[in-house]
Amino acid sequence: MDLKKYIESGILEDYVLGLTSDTDNKEIEQNLVKYPKLQKELNQIEDALATYAQSKARPMPEGLSAQIMQSIDDLATQPTAQSDTSTSAAKPQATLSKGTNTLGIFLGLALAGALLGSYFLNTQKQDAQQQLAVSQTEKQELNDRFLAFQLDCEEKDGTILRLQEQIDIFRNPDYRPISLKGTDKAPNTESIVYFNAKENKSYFDIRNLPTAPSDKDYQLWAIVGGVPTDMGIVNLSNGLVKVDHIGDAQAFAVTLEARDGNPAPNLDELYVIGNV
């Protein structure tokens, strides 16, 4: 495996942030065990983020720490308290074996009956407890599935909203499509900025630019008074995306830059450009 590429893909950052899927997590965790270099990298990401979290700390309210420790102590002592009662309950039975023959037999039978009864009741209670535990697990599972379903729905809602938004853009005459034509680097290509001066909104569709090498990203620029202004990274996979609206832009351009972009464009790598 190309570790450098793997690290650069940003998957470890996503893993720490909890953005990776369960399947990804399994694979990442296997790789972490296999490659110490990955673990070192992971730890550095984690340490940086942990320091960030420390900088955003909020002092716990007074007494909270003690309160937490108290409940943990209580939890830890509970099981021993239960076993104490069960041993003390067994004691009185031993004293009952004395007495006259008939009374002894009678009492013995009665005791046997009582023990049998309590055994029966106890088994029933245990069954009921087990059933309760099972239904609680089932409830938890259903709850988890419901949450997952809810998230799924929210995601789908998001997709529908995005599609609706796109349709609105295409149908709205206030959006003026500005064509960015391919340079010699990428002849016969075209990207489009949808420019809405009325509502101060812009969208960008990268369309058919060639796939960027894995160590590079396309970056969008607005030219204002001859000076390029960074409008962020644009990926082929994103389709139509909302971008900052730069009202006084005279032109828009896309260049191929180092991964995650650069503060100023590399004009040798100009791919498309178009005037407003």
Partner: peptide
């Protein structure tokens, strides 16, 4: 845009480090 969130995450962690 989502793409901006993704690139900002990476830049943020890189800068933080």
């Amino acid at each position: 845009p989502l793409g901006t969130v993704k690139s900002r995450i990476k830049i943020a962690i890189r800068e933080l480090r």
